[in-house]
Amino acid sequence: MNNWLHAIKADDAGTAARAQRYAAAAAIGVAAGLFFSAVARMVISAASAILTYVS
């Protein structure tokens, strides 16, 4: 982490770009996790509705 910060300060383009890519990947990951949780809840609701209808 210190190396990254130092590299960003020192304007090391390669390391800074890598740090940005990792940060972007983390943000995409969080968004994907939230999306997947919403999908999982939707699946549970749908299954519950289907079974209520069936029974």
């Binding site: 890519r21 990792y22 972007a24 990947a25 983390a26 943000a27 995409i28 990951g29 969080v30 994907a32 996790g33 939230l34 997947f36 949780s37 999982a40």
Partner: peptide
């Protein structure tokens, strides 16, 4: 490697909520 970072965050968030 970026995919692994994304996987770690996505997995954690999904498991945390579920």
């Amino acid at each position: 490697v970026e995919g692994v970072v994304g996987a770690a965050f996505a997995g954690f968030v999904a498991i945390y909520i579920f």
